[in-house]
């Protein structure tokens, strides 16, 4: 790693450490391996929560680079690693590193959004992450013939649910008021999330602005 690269990764680490949660997630490492033994991702990927805890405790910039570029998106975020007898939370470190990666549109974050932007659009516009119209055979062939049944009968099946907020909803999980959707969009604006999304998922940001800016203007909001 040359000096200029060192400078970049030192800043990534410094930014991660400025997150108030960082120091609650890292207390040193016994190398006992409890976190690895508990970790579902470690069973299927070349991934080790212990490596993350150790590298971050040592502030090893070379390993930090490898972890951010290759490891963090493999974590399952189940927090089984919090079994750590030292009170570490490698999963907690991962979510902070993911945030930094997204905020600075690091290559691994941009790559992680591949195939995922539709979900971001869904949650940012409706406030609900999944909807029944996503249950299409081409999207979920591995879920078996029940997906085809759902897709075929979706219109009437969604009407045949007595929970009123779900009546007829296909593009959102439940019927979310337009006022509530606008409030959610304003939260994304006021908290800087829109600025984070633009570099990693520009199409989502553009669609959101198109969908909500006019409505906000009509309501007299900037």
């Amino acid at each position: 790693m040359d000096e200029s690269e060192k400078k970049v990764w030192a800043e990534v680490l410094a930014e991660a450490k400025r997150d108030p949660r960082w120091h609650h997630s890292l207390h040193g490492c016994f190398e006992c391996g409890v976190c690895v033994g508990s970790c579902p991702s470690a069973r299927y990927y070349d991934y080790s929560p212990r490596r993350i805890a150790q590298a971050m405790a040592r502030e090893d910039l070379n390993l930090l680079k490898e972890i951010v570029e290759e490891d963090i998106w493999n974590c399952s975020q189940c927090y089984a690693c919090t079994r750590c007898p030292r009170g570490n939370s490698p999963g907690g470190l991962v979510i902070i590193l993911r945030e930094v990666a997204v905020k600075h549109a690091l290559p691994s974050a941009v790559e992680a959004m591949t195939g995922y932007t539709r979900v971001i659009y869904k949650v940012m516009t409706t406030g609900t992450q999944v909807s029944s119209d996503m249950l299409q055979v081409d999207a979920f062939p591995d879920w078996g013939p029940q997906v085809a049944d759902t897709s075929k009968h979706l219109d009437e099946w969604r009407q045949a649910i007595p929970t009123a907020s779900l009546w007829g909803t296909k593009s959102s999980a439940w019927n979310v008021d337009q006022k509530t959707r606008l409030e959610l969009y304003r939260i994304w604006q006021m908290t800087g999330v829109m600025d984070w999304v633009k570099p990693v998922a520009p199409s989502v940001a553009a669609l959101l602005e198109e969908e909500f800016e006019e409505a906000l203007e009509e309501e007299g909001e900037e």
Partner: peptide, 22 residues
């Protein structure tokens, strides 16, 4: 209610396209 959104946590844990303030 229909004035409810999800916690948006699923997306947060999946993509980190959010932050603590949000």
């Amino acid at each position: 209610p229909t004035n409810q959104t999800s916690c948006t946590g699923w997306n947060y844990y999946a993509s980190a396209t959010s932050n603590s303030l949000a």
